[in-house]
Amino acid sequence: TTYKLILNGKTLKGETTTEAVDAETAERVFKEYAKKNGVDGEWTYDDATKTFTVTE
């Protein structure tokens, strides 16, 4: 399944996708990605669109 991440950081904005077996796995991948890019904020997930959003 393809999951999407929307980054709404103070200095970094953008989108990325990952293939994962479930939302929990995708969330771990995306949180590591955000951490590596210095983005830390509020996380939300929309199951209907398989989209995570992190907003600083």
Rank of each mutant, 00 (worst) to 15 (best):
K4G: 04
A26D: 00
W43M: 04
E56V: 09
D47E: 15
V29C: 06
G9M: 11
E56K: 04
V39W: 12
L7C: 06
N37L: 15
L12V: 15
K36E: 12
A26Q: 00
T51H: 03
F52W: 08
K13D: 05
G9H: 07
G14D: 09
Y3N: 01
N8G: 04
D46P: 00
V29K: 10
R28F: 10
T55I: 09
E24F: 11
E56S: 08
G41E: 01
T25N: 11
G38D: 07
G41A: 02
T51K: 03
V21E: 13
T51C: 05
L5S: 01
K31N: 04
T1C: 06
Y3W: 09
K4T: 13
K50V: 03
F52R: 00
N8W: 11
V21M: 14
K50E: 03
F52I: 01
L5F: 06
D40P: 04
G9Q: 04
W43E: 00
K36T: 15
D22N: 15
E15G: 08
E19K: 07
T11P: 03
K50N: 07
V39C: 05
A23K: 08
N37R: 12
D40A: 11
Y45S: 01
K36Y: 11
Y45A: 01
I6H: 05
T49S: 12
V29W: 11
V39N: 03
K35S: 11
N37V: 15
G38W: 05
D47G: 11
E24I: 15
A23Y: 15
K36A: 11
E15I: 13
Y3K: 00
E32Q: 10
T51N: 02
T1P: 14
K50C: 05
A48R: 08
A48P: 08
A48H: 10
R28D: 05
K50G: 04
R28N: 07
D40L: 12
Y3T: 00
A23N: 07
R28T: 09
Y45E: 00
T51Y: 03
K35E: 10
A26I: 02
I6M: 06
K35C: 07
T16C: 08
V29T: 11
D47R: 05
D46C: 07
K10T: 12
Y3E: 00
N37A: 15
D46N: 10
W43K: 00
V29F: 15
A23V: 14
T16K: 07
L7F: 12
T44L: 11
F30W: 02
L5M: 05
F30L: 05
R28I: 09
Y3P: 00
A20Q: 08
L7G: 02
E32N: 08
D47V: 11
T53L: 06
W43Y: 03
V29G: 04
V29R: 10
G14Q: 13
K13W: 12
Y33E: 03
A34N: 03
K36Q: 11
T55N: 10
W43H: 01
T17C: 06
T49F: 05
G14T: 13
I6D: 03
T44N: 12
L5P: 00
E24S: 12
G38P: 02
A23F: 14
R28S: 11
I6P: 00
A20I: 03
E42A: 12
A23G: 05
E19T: 14
I6F: 07
E42S: 13
E32Y: 06
A26E: 00
T25D: 09
L5I: 03
E24V: 13
G41Y: 03
D22V: 03
K4D: 02
T16D: 03
Y33V: 06
A48M: 12
T53R: 06
Y45I: 01
D47T: 13
G38L: 07
V54T: 03
E19R: 07
E24Q: 14
K10H: 15
Y33A: 03
T55R: 06
T53Q: 06
F52E: 00
E19M: 11
G41N: 01
T51L: 04
K36C: 08
E32L: 11
L5Q: 01
G9E: 03
D46Q: 04
T25K: 06
Y45P: 00
G14Y: 10
E19S: 11
K35M: 14
R28E: 08
Y33I: 06
E15S: 12
D46E: 09
G14C: 08
V29Q: 09
T11L: 15
L5A: 03
Y3Q: 01
G41R: 01
K4S: 08
K13Q: 13
T1V: 09
L5R: 00
K35H: 11
E15H: 11
I6G: 02
E42L: 10
D47A: 10
V21P: 15
D47C: 05
L5K: 00
K13T: 12
Y45M: 02
K4E: 03
T16L: 15
D40T: 12
K10V: 13
L7R: 02
K13G: 06
T51Q: 05
A34T: 07
A48D: 13
T1Q: 13
A34G: 03
D47Q: 11
E24G: 10
T11I: 10
V54S: 02
K4Y: 14
A20V: 05
E15P: 04
G9P: 03
K36S: 13
K4C: 06
K50Q: 09
Y3L: 01
K50P: 00
L5Y: 02
K4P: 01
V21S: 14
D46R: 03
A20H: 03
A20N: 03
Y45T: 01
F30K: 00
E32M: 07
T51R: 03
Y33Q: 03
F30P: 00
G38N: 14
K36R: 14
G41P: 01
G9R: 04
R28V: 10
D46F: 05
D22G: 04
N8Q: 11
N37P: 01
V29H: 15
E15D: 07
T17G: 04
T25L: 06
N37Y: 13
Y45W: 03
G9T: 12
V39E: 02
A48K: 14
Y33M: 04
T49N: 09
E56H: 08
V29M: 11
F52C: 00
D47Y: 08
